[in-house]
């Protein structure tokens, strides 16, 4: 049911753009106004998100580690699992961001037919997540050929690697196959696993359906329905040089694709997808475990009025001398 809600929302979006750009022909609205607005919302939203996170207090370091903490020189410490300085944190973050190291430790809990509870490592999610994210990055970078003039070597190189096998015409991109396979796996996982289905919300499905819609429309345009690429680039270049011009020859599939992409951009900062920025600010990953080495003062500690021994001694100075009690001061 919750999956259907999300699917319905995507279907409504499809209906909106199909009626708007396809039937009514509001090409300037869907080709220029919507993408500009979406990117603006995306940029402001991400900055707002990050600034909000950055303003949260960090009273101390959260040592969620699974390695030996640094202490004495002769005890080998695990600098990657339990970093005590910036360099260790940098390496832990790099592995987290590039290879999803935490997800590698993903486990699955199952009740066997003999009613025994077993935990086992489950790396399919990690593999699918890696396949999805890296393919998406490659696809995103490949699209720069529509936004840059002249097209940099890096983009053409990436494209040639992606289409390495030269299968079919136009060349089949491996990232296209991978992203669809990975997204279908991630969706199937939510739909077929009972526990996961129970905890999945419409927002979880919506992100997947939206990404699938983006990928499928893109793939269809490249391999099946075809689009006038020169016109597509003219529109894209017009957008990024702030001199938008709406070509007349691009078909409705193109507008459907960029409308879904625009929705993705605008939705990004306000959804779970914002983990793109959030991963860099995960306190359990990006803080060195130096609680014992350095003093971290809790920022919301109230100002405490203290009366030190020195002050006390000052107050009762004469009486202490009279009683013959030795003073610290002398």
């Amino acid at each position: 049911m919750r999956a259907l809600t999300a699917l319905l929302v995507v279907a409504v979006l499809l209906g909106v753009v199909w009626l708007g750009a396809g039937v009514a022909g509001w090409h300037a609205f869907f080709g220029v106004a919507v993408p500009y607005a979406a990117v603006l919302i995306f940029l402001i939203g991400i900055v707002w998100r990050v600034v909000t996170w950055a303003r949260s207090p960090v009273p101390f370091r959260i040592p969620t580690t699974c390695g030996q903490q640094r202490s004495l020189d002769w005890i080998p410490s695990s600098t990657l699992e339990n970093p005590h300085d910036g360099w260790g944190v940098t390496r832990r973050m790099a592995l987290e961001v590039l290879l999803f190291r935490s997800l590698f430790r993903n486990t699955r809990t199952e009740l066997t037919p003999t009613k025994r509870l077993v935990y086992e490592s489950d790396r399919y999610l990690w593999v699918a997540a890696l396949a999805f994210h890296w393919s998406f990055l490659v696809i995103f970078l490949r699209h720069l050929r529509f936004f840059l003039q002249p097209v940099p070597q890096l983009v053409t190189f990436l494209e040639s690697v992606d289409g390495f096998f030269q299968l079919a015409v136009p060349t089949l991109f491996l990232s296209d196959v991978l992203i669809l396979a990975a997204l279908l796996y991630l969706l199937g996982r939510r739909l077929l696993n009972r526990q996961l289905r129970y905890i999945s919300l419409p927002a979880d499905y919506f992100a997947l359906f939206l990404l699938l819609a983006v990928a499928i429309t893109g793939v269809l345009m490249r391999y099946v329905t075809k689009v006038d690429l020169v016109a597509a680039k003219e529109l894209a270049m017009g957008l990024v040089t702030f001199s938008p011009k709406v070509p007349t020859v691009i078909g409705t599939p193109f507008y459907i694709h960029i409308f879904f992409v625009s929705v993705l951009f605008a939705y990004f900062p306000f959804s779970k997808l914002t983990h793109m920025a959030g991963i860099f600010l995960s306190p359990t990953r990006n803080l060195a475990n130096n609680n014992r080495k350095r003093r971290h003062v809790n920022p919301w500690n109230p100002e405490v009025e203290v009366h030190t021994y020195a002050q006390w001694e000052e107050d009762f100075h004469d009486k202490l001398v009279a009683a013959g009690i030795p003073l610290d001061k002398e």
């Binding site: 990050v50 936004f147 840059l148 002249p150 016109a231 003219e234 270049m237 040089t241």
Partner: peptide
């Protein structure tokens, strides 16, 4: 980090400005 992110996202804008790219189709 935010500035790096913004610079990367806006690559098309300043790259094309730097190369004086023609927006119009050939």
């Amino acid at each position: 980090g935010l500035l790096v992110f913004l610079i990367l996202v806006t690559v098309p804008v300043w790259f094309n400005a730097a190369t004086h790219a023609q927006a119009r189709a050939p």
